[in-house]
């Protein structure tokens, strides 16, 4: 019965999904505006990596998982208002503005 429900996920995939859930949970605690921004950023980042990273590139995925865990821990702190710091680093790599 368990096998027929949904796709079988590897341990790593489960970790990624659990992190994604964690980020979305953490975003709930922020203000509506920040939350939306965090959600769209997190969502695009996860989707980008899901598409771009080779699924056999375990070392890199493990690095991303470790990095995401640290970022999530920071985001969980009530003092952290949003992901703006992350956003800056992402936008710098994508389209350098300054």
């Amino acid at each position: 019965m368990g096998a027929s429900r949904g796709p079988r996920l590897s341990g790593m995939q489960k970790q990624v999904l659990s992190l994604y859930r964690g980020f979305l949970r953490a975003a709930r605690a922020k203000s509506a505006e920040d939350r939306q921004q965090i959600e769209s950023l997190v969502s695009s980042e996860f989707r980008r990596n899901a598409k771009e990273v080779d699924r056999k590139n375990f070392l890199y995925i493990e690095y991303l998982l470790r990095r995401a865990k640290k970022q999530l821990d920071q985001l969980r702190s009530p003092d952290v208002v949003g992901l703006s710091a992350l956003n800056v680093s992402f936008s710098q790599t994508k389209h350098p503005t300054n």
Binding site: P7, L9, L17, Y20, L24, R25, S43, F46, A50
Partner: peptide
């Protein structure tokens, strides 16, 4: 969900 075009990330979003 999968046949509606949802991937595992979408499923997480739906559950949330």
């Amino acid at each position: 969900f999968a046949s509606l075009g949802a991937d595992s990330l979408d499923t997480v979003e739906i559950v949330m």
